[in-house]
Design a protein around this nucleic acid. Structure first.
Length: 934
RNA sequence: GCGAGUGUGGCGGAAUUGGUAGACGCGCUAGACUUAUGAUCUAGUGUCCUAGACGUGGGGGUUCGAGUCCCUUCACUCGCACCA
């Protein structure tokens, strides 16, 4: 008789091979058909919400590995919170306005763009963004994330655009906004502002000049000079046309400067006896440039001495103020930098610091304005040489020459661009104490990792006013009217409501398409000058303002959501981006942070820690991994890595994860395979009636579960990964399940011994599927399907709750098994040595003799027989002092001797037992097996 | 350049307050089993030629003792834009 058929071997249709790339799409469809996300929410308490507010990705390009990290992480947290019982609606979003899309559309339109109206261009941009939203949506869904994917928030939705404007109006109403000047790249040929991305660097020949700025008499004494002494600071510039805008001379506080007295020179604009101020280190070279044949250094000092010292402009009767800036170096020039706050970024910043005027004497077409002395209405390009000539004539020019250097040019017309101050709208950091209030709100937010708080705090402390205006087409217009006579902003509740209503109905295009009369009630007058003619502001908003208002446009508007968010979760770059703009907006309008907690992740880098780039060719495409291994592997990757730092990905890392996944899957498969005849409603054994080993297994699982819950709570997903995997490998596969085989296979199907084991297996596999569901959502749901039906079984795993941690009162048993584990370790070691020595093959060929102290020997008892625990045929005990020729533990407290068993092998369970032959009916079986098939 | 972060085996990651570095797992190498079988179990595995020595990016320092604290240096990542 073939007794194999009488064993209860595992049976299951749960496939060993996951075929994830094929099966995942099927499951996604199933979830969509069954409305799994909605059902997950339907069993939660709406009064107990957990809102993770999605930071909108930009609607451009395919999804990349960084998106995958971010979206998977969000989904894991959402599912974790859902399984904890929270109501967790997730509304994904997309950021749609902005330059990158406009530039793409520009490229597509080419020269046609010039003939198109603003709203025609905007329609093209909208089409473009729509396409990528759909594209990215499919990519995100494929990752397994739950959410309201077909009803997302989109910053170009009409209602969202209206809401964005409404938020802006709040700033206008509370005095948070002002109009100022700020330098931008400007093409005088195309008459437009340019972005950095629209600027190309190319060689350009400029005239470089060295110019004297005489020190005002009142300051000479400070440097030990008489009022009659001629002393000048010397500056250098390659853009002489910006000199009419000069308002300052910038020194570096840490550099050393000298006053030198000229004693011999052939420079016609320099006289013996004249004094010059120059950076000490550069004097030697400059002396040559200036034809200064001999000179004496009369005084040296640090740059700090020049702060607030007044100089006279080279050719205007105007003060140029001595100021300090870190950007001043000795690489070129004199160590003293000509500063025109209206014509340079650094000049602008340092100018703001010293309260200099942001002077811009140049108009849109590159001509000096009418009020500019000497050069009124002259083109700056033509005026350049004239300025040089003038300075040479009146004696302030020390030297000039042509130099060729890299200079920004317009990408459209290839002409050189200028840097020029233009009127801009700002949200003032000091208005309504915005900076102060944001800083105090930052402290109330929980930042993970903790250094995020320092990072964003430093940024808020140092940032300038927020420039929210852009001279572009694709965005939400700053929809306010200005008085044509006095430039005053004309806005009131009535006008605002009309504009907002038009936005809600027609989108922001209404601002460009509709006439002023549609928005301005008849009889409206400028509150300042009483004027009755108004013009539209046509600048659009910085897109950071769009996404910064999402807390208002989404959380406050959607009935299923609530404000503020529990969590914002993005990459660490968003300290500068969305975390930043959101809290500025929220505190500026509501005085409170829009989030309670901020979690950040690092960036995805390659296996060597380098960023991914096209030139290095080290990029990893999530689609490739999904198609080859499945999204589940990416999810496992997210969980396995410590995402608070930069996250590495490589073929090696992925193949490790594939192996881990197989282990988890096979463990689950084995558990399921042994439950084919188990009915949870009728076959469960009470804990107290279970075999001691099964009770121990359940106790172990509680410990692991607890650890995992704590890890989830702290977002330490890699702790979940390691604990969970180790439980599968260490506790189940190589220990508990290995021992259990005999009991599951050989006992009567409905025996207490077998049902006890199945009760433990059922509990563990069911709870495991729930615990792993946030991370391995595809596999968890698949496992859950195969779990034996019961009254309690839900439609899918996401409708479950995390099983609570049961505090079993079974300490004595647990302690006993700890002891057994120690001895078992020595036994397996001894068996391995015996196997190597060819004494035995399979451990069931062996008998072992254990020598130990009395206490340990007493503990070595198990309900099913201690030999089952060691998976040997027989265990005997002996006085350890009498044992020779055996394995001894390192501490000498345990001895194990292995001998081949002399008994006959039971044909059914392969144990060698003295009882084989006792049964007349089954002479080749042991008593246990004979009984089991009776 | 400035601000922030990170450097531990082939890989993921451990190391309470300064106290045996590399737990645990993967991988790899051997072996066992053929009743989880494209599975499962067991043992070994930082480096160097052994005794022994050396090892937490490099170099200094504090200390009886440093992955951990201090100084310095290098590498990588993020941010400093009309840029999402």
């Amino acid at each position: 008789m073939d007794y194999k058929d009488t064993l209860n071997l595992p049976q299951t249709d749960f496939p060993m091979k996951a075929s994830l790339s094929v099966k995942e799409p099927e499951r996604l469809k199933k979830w969509a058909d069954e409305k799994a996300y909605e059902k997950m929410l339907s069993v939660r308490d709406r009064n107990n919400p957990y809102i993770l507010h999605d930071g909108p990705p930009y609607a451009n390009g395919d999804i990349h590995i960084g998106h995958a990290l971010n979206k998977i992480l969000k989904d894991i947290i959402i599912k974790t919170k859902a399984l904890e019982g929270f109501y967790t609606p997730y509304v994904p979003g997309w950021d749609c306005h902005g330059l990158p899309i406009e530039l793409q559309v520009d490229k597509k339109l080419g020269s046609k763009k010039a003939e198109m109206s603003k709203s025609e261009i905007r329609k093209e941009c909208r089409k473009y963004a729509d396409k990528f939203i759909d594209n990215q949506r499919q990519g995100f869904i494929r990752l397994g994330g739950f959410g309201d994917w077909y009803n997302p928030y989109i910053t170009m939705d009409y209602k969202y655009e209206a809401k964005t404007l409404q938020e802006l109006y709040r700033f206008f109403d509370n005095g948070g906004v002002f109009k100022g000047l700020k330098p931008v790249y400007w093409c005088t040929s195309c008459v437009t502002a340019l972005a950095e991305a629209e600027v190309e660097y190319d060689n350009h020949t400029s005239t470089s000049v060295f110019v004297k700025f005489p020190m005002k008499d009142a300051f000479k004494a400070k440097f030990g000079l008489k009022e009659s002494d001629r002393v000048s600071a010397v500056i250098w510039t390659t853009t002489p046309w910006t000199l009419p805008a000069n308002l300052g001379i910038c020194a570096n506080a840490e550099l050393e400067y000298s006053i030198v007295k000229v004693t011999d020179t052939c420079n016609k604009n320099l006289a013996a006896g004249e004094y010059l101020i120059l950076a000490t280190e550069l004097i030697k070279n400059l002396a040559e440039t200036f034809h200064m044949h001999a000179y004496d250094s009369v005084k040296t000092f640090f740059g700090t001495e020049l702060e607030m010292v007044e100089f006279k402009h080279a050719f205007y009767d105007r003060v140029s103020l001595g100021i300090l800036g870190d950007h001043v170096t000795l690489e070129a020039g004199t160590g003293l930098v000509h500063t025109a706050p209206g014509h340079g970024q650094e000049d602008y910043e340092v100018g703001l610091k010293y309260g200099l005027e942001i002077l811009n004497p140049v108009d849109d077409h590159g001509r000096y304005k009418r009020n500019v002395e000497l050069f009124a209405e002259e083109s700056i390009y033509k005026a350049g040489p004239k300025i040089v000539e003038l300075m040479d004539e009146q004696g302030s020019l020390l030297s000039h020459s042509d130099i060729s250097h890299s200079y920004p040019h317009c990408w459209r017309c290839s002409k050189p661009v200028i840097f020029r101050a233009t009127p801009q709208w700002f949200i003032g950091m000091e208005n309504n104490d915005l900076r102060k209030n944001v800083l105090s709100e930052l402290k109330k937010v929980r930042w993970t990792p903790a250094w995020g708080e320092n990072r964003i705090t430093a940024m808020i402390e140092n940032r300038p006013d927020w420039c929210i205006s852009r001279q572009r087409s694709w965005g939400v217009p700053i929809a306010v009217f200005l008085c044509e006579d006095c430039d005053e902003v004309v806005t009131n509740h009535d006008i605002q409501e009309r504009v907002l209503a038009a936005f809600r109905e027609h989108g922001a295009d209404a601002w460009f398409d509709m006439d002023n009369s549609a928005f301005i009630p008849e009889g409206t007058k400028c509150p300042k000058c009483g004027g009755t003619h108004f013009k539209k502001e046509t600048d659009i908003l910085d897109v950071w303002f769009d996404s910064g208002t999402s807390h208002a446009a989404v959380l406050e508007e959607r009935p299923e959501l609530s404000w503020p968010a529990n969590m914002y979760l993005e990459g660490s770059d968003q300290h500068r981006g969305w975390f930043h703009s959101s809290i500025l907006e929220s505190v500026g309008t509501r005085g409170v942070a829009p989030y309670k907690e901020v979690l950040t992740h690092g960036f995805v880098v390659d296996g060597k820690g380098r960023k991914m780039s096209k030139s290095l060719g080290n990029g990893v495409d999530p689609k490739e991994i999904i198609n080859k291994y499945g999204a589940e592997i990416l999810r496992l990757w997210v969980a396995a890595e410590d995402f608070t730092e930069d996250v590495r990905i490589s073929d090696d890392i992925i193949s490790r994860l594939v192996e881990s996944y197989r282990k988890i899957r096979n463990t689950a498969r084995y558990l399921l395979g042994n439950l084919y005849d188990f009915n949870p409603d009728t076959d469960m054994v009470d804990f107290k009636d279970m075999l001691d080993l099964d009770r121990f297994a359940l106790v172990r699982w509680q410990t692991v579960k607890k650890r995992i819950y704590e890890a989830y709570d702290k977002y330490q997903l890699h702790v979940f990964y390691h604990s969970f995997l180790n439980f599968c490998i260490g506790d189940l596969s190589s220990f508990y399940l290995d021992i259990l085989k005999d009991r599951l296979y050989a006992y009567k199907p409905d025996s207490r011994e077998r049902r006890s084991a199945q009760t433990a297996l059922y509990t563990i596999v069911k709870e495991m599927s729930i615990v792993m569901a946030p991370v391995l959502c595809f596999t968890a749901d698949e496992i859950y399907e195969y779990i034996p039906s019961s009254k309690e079984k839900k439609e899918n795993v996401f409708m479950e709750m995390f099983a609570s941690v049961t505090e079993y009162k079974d300490e004595a048993n647990t302690a006993k098994w700890q002891k057994i584990l120690e001895v078992r370790k020595e036994a397996t070691k001894a068996l391995e040595l015996a196997r190597a020595a060819k004494i035995i093959g399979h451990p069931l060929d062996a008998d072992i003799i254990i020598g130990s102290d009395e206490e340990t020997a007493k503990a070595l008892k198990a309900d099913e027989g201690i030999e089952r625990i060691f998976i040997v045929s027989e265990v005997k005990f002996a006085d350890m002092n009498s044992m020779t020729d055996c394995h001894t533990s390192e501490d000498g407290k345990i001895k194990v001797k292995v001998t081949p068993s002399a008994n006959t092998k039971c044909e059914r369970c392969w144990t060698k037992s003295a009882s084989v032959g006792h049964s007349a009916e089954h002479p080749t079986l042991c008593t246990r097996c004979a009984g089991a098939i009776a």
